[in-house]
């Protein structure tokens, strides 16, 4: 029984707690200023602990992971960030998503060099996010 209990606490020791926000924006975007601004917008959202933005032409995918304790605010945070980015860049097709799938896939796209492929992937992900069932 004792071993059993210890086993359950192992993950806590391994992961620990970190308050550092990790925000990454894909390098592919030509406009350095835009990149920085988007990064700052994500950083300003306190609830987000990991944010990844993929910029491909006029398509922008922002994948965020909200602190688990604030999970109930997830939808609100999503909407707020979406609105902020949309206001700043009305010409971009933005999707802010807190979905784990978006987070996972965007990590892979961070170093994608082929802009045509990048754009396709982003579009595919956006379609996936809209699926209900």
């Amino acid at each position: 029984m004792k071993k059993f209990i210890i086993f359950f606490f192992v993950p806590f020791f391994l992961i620990g707690c970190s308050n550092e926000q990790i925000v990454k924006v894909s390098n592919n975007a030509a406009d350095g200023e835009k990149r920085e601004e988007i990064e700052n917008l994500i950083r300003d959202t306190k609830e987000v602990y990991t944010g990844t933005a993929i910029l491909a032409g006029d398509e922008l995918l922002v994948a965020i992971q909200v602190n688990p304790w604030l999970g109930y605010k997830e939808q609100k945070v999503e909407k707020k960030l979406q609105k902020e980015i949309k206001e700043k860049y009305p010409d971009l097709h933005v999707l802010v998503s807190s979905d784990y799938k978006m987070h996972w896939e965007s990590q892979k796209l961070l170093n994608e060099k082929d802009s045509k492929k990048l754009k396709d992937e982003v579009k595919k992900l956006k379609d996936l996010a809209k699926e209900e069932t």
Partner: peptide, 17 residues
């Protein structure tokens, strides 16, 4: 659920079922 999300085209919303 993570397995479905990572290896298949499921999202948080669709992996539940």
């Amino acid at each position: 659920m993570y397995l479905y999300i990572i290896f298949f085209d499921f999202t948080d919303k669709t992996a539940g079922n």
